[in-house]
């Protein structure tokens, strides 16, 4: 197992957001978290990357407890988070955003090679290299957010709502890239996505979150057959 989370409770101030969350992410898989707005998907990803601290519970990555580590220490382990809303540095150039992606020690040494490789995956960014990130279109910004994360040489990639605010055609392109990451780059992916149809399409295993709890889980191919899931999340 790449990631094992055990009975995690997370609070924002006094409000409990996550309740007894337990889940596993298999090596080399795409695991999806689906669920409505406010169900705790983003909070869970933020807790894994160390931005938030859980009240109780454990998060083990490669059998090592990571609760209590600083975000930069978690990055050093190879867990890279593509946050909701991309969170690019809008006044820095595309190049500078990619440079910061490789801030951690290991990735820094291979910046040049990685940059070249990643620009062949995302050729559009090559054309925009010296433009400010804030001037890119929504789709380009999502590509840059993923490319920036790849510069960090992730082993586990946390991607939060990659389809948010994008046109359907662009969403397809983004997901093509996400599939490629798993297949050719051998990166393990944990994905939070409101767009359940897309999540089922790419993922191996799916967790359904509602009000901070895991209410359903299963292999994507099996869970998608479920009547209730089809009705509530896929509208079929």
């Amino acid at each position: 197992m790449s990631l094992v989370i055990n009975s995690l409770d997370v609070y924002y101030g006094k409000v409990q957001i996550l309740r007894e969350i337990s889940l596993k992410v298999d090596h080399g898989s795409i695991t999806a978290l689906i669920g409505p707005n406010g169900s705790g998907k983003t909070t869970l990803l933020k807790t894994i990357s160390g931005i938030l601290r859980p009240m109780k519970g454990s998060i083990k990555y490669e059998d090592k407890e990571i609760v209590g580590l600083q975000p930069h220490e978690i990055v050093e382990l190879g867990i890279i988070h593509v946050p909701e809303g991309r969170r690019l540095f809008p006044y820095l150039t595309v190049y500078e955003n990619l440079l910061l992606g490789s801030y951690n020690k290991k990735a820094r040494e291979r910046f040049k090679d990685n940059l070249e490789r990643i620009l062949t995956i995302f050729p559009i960014l090559k054309e925009r290299l010296h433009q400010k990130a804030g001037t890119l279109s929504g789709g380009e910004q999502q590509m840059l957010a993923i490319a920036r994360a790849l510069m960090a040489e992730p082993r586990l990639l946390l991607i939060d709502e990659p389809s948010l605010g994008l046109a359907p055609k662009i969403i397809d392109t983004v997901y093509e890239h996400i599939k490629t990451l798993k297949e050719s780059e051998k990166i393990t992916i944990l994905l939070a996505e409101q767009n359940a149809a897309k999540a089922f399409e790419v993922s191996d295993y799916v967790y359904v979150l509602e009000t901070g709890r895991v209410v359903r889980e299963g292999k994507a191919v099996e869970l998608i057959q479920d009547e209730e899931i089809r009705k509530v999340y896929l509208g079929i």
Binding site: P71, F89, Y103, N104
Partner: peptide, 22 residues
């Protein structure tokens, strides 16, 4: 790297942390 990290930090603290910036 450090200087670019400083400029990044002034734009988005959380994103800077996610880059591995201490």
């Amino acid at each position: 790297y450090l200087g670019t990290a400083m400029r990044a930090l002034s734009q988005d603290k959380t994103a800077a942390q996610l880059m591995g910036i201490d």
